[in-house]
């Protein structure tokens, strides 16, 4: 028995400070991403979620350039970009996607410039690599309180706006008729989304940020109808995938071909995707996802 345990949990796993920080930060980020992700999927804003992570990277590389803590660059630029997206965005989903794309294009252009300056002036070739993929095992221990503080803030915003957000996501017109400030709620939600993804993009990379935002939430929405439950299930899936991914990455240190560890992001992405595919097996998830898709389908049938 102890032999199997020893094989699963490589010696030194629990003693390593880097792994401890990764588990803490990864867990906090996963809970927040999973929760916010349910609203993102219901509102059909996966693209915005992904774009904000990429645009946050612009802020990160900009802050890097002027010697500021990248965290503030990430969060600041992502929140500003979210504001622009919401103010440009038309209410039709197609127009909204276009506005997101334009902001993303401009953000990536600026990122190209910042990274160019970073690499020519301060000689940091790894910058583009770190910004894209992040590296969970080299998170600075001092960012832990900041990450947890922001996580609590985002969760508080979601809890406070929960009912209004849900109503304005599912039935914008009904919400407006009931006196919900739809536009304001949308901006508040997008700001929360921006903080979430920029936080996760900075700590675990833009790739994992999108994976944890969309994957667990889409899986959870296939499993349960009730948004509250979906949020809990989604957060649980996200945390499980993250921790299992960390464990596997730590174990993979002795795997072929290179003997230096496979990336965490690979494992987490595969786990998240496998969970999503499992809900698509025949006989599971008979219901349709809420939101625009089901509306479109009913209209087609009518």
């Amino acid at each position: 028995m102890s032999g199997i345990l020893r094989w699963v949990f490589e010696p030194g796993l629990f003693g390593s400070a880097a792994v401890g920080v990764a588990v803490l930060v990864g867990g906090a980020v996963a809970v927040v991403s999973g929760t916010v992700g349910v609203l993102t999927v219901i509102r059909g804003q996966s693209f915005a979620g992904h774009a904000l992570a990429d645009v946050g990277a612009t802020g990160g590389s900009g802050a890097f350039l002027i010697g500021l803590n990248p965290l503030w660059g990430f969060v600041g630029v992502a929140v500003v970009a979210a504001g622009i997206m919401e103010s440009v965005g038309v209410r039709r989903p197609r127009g909204r996607d276009l506005a997101t794309g334009i902001v993303l294009g401009a953000g990536l252009g600026l990122a190209a410039l910042f990274l160019y300056w970073d690499t020519t002036w301060s000689n940091t070739t790894g910058a583009s690599m770190t910004v894209l993929f992040g590296s969970m095992f080299v998170i600075d221990g001092s960012t832990v309180p900041v990450v947890i503080g922001f996580s609590v803030f985002v969760l508080a915003v979601v809890v406070l706006l929960y009912r209004m957000l849900l109503l304005s996501s599912l039935h914008p017109d009904l919400a407006a008729a009931r006196g919900v400030p739809v536009r304001l709620v949308g901006i508040g939600y997008l700001a929360a989304l921006a903080v979430t993804v920029s936080l996760s993009a900075m700590t675990i990379g833009a790739v994992l940020s999108t994976a944890l935002l969309v994957g667990p939430a889409a899986t959870a929405l296939r499993l349960t109808k009730r948004p509250g439950w979906a949020m809990a299930v989604s957060a649980a899936i996200a945390v499980a995938a993250t921790w299992l991914g960390i464990l596997l990455a730590y174990d993979s240190y002795y795997w072929p071909p290179l003997q230096r560890g496979w990336p965490v992001s690979f494992f987490v992405v595969v786990l998240v995707f496998a969970a999503y595919l499992l809900t698509h097996l025949p006989g599971t998830g008979p219901r349709r996802a809420p939101g625009p898709v089901s509306l479109v389908n009913t209209r087609k049938e009518a």
Partner: peptide, 16 residues
Amino acid sequence: GRHDVATALALVVMLG
């Protein structure tokens, strides 16, 4: 499933 979810997942799997 939803189109944007499918796109996001395909993207992250490729990037992973």
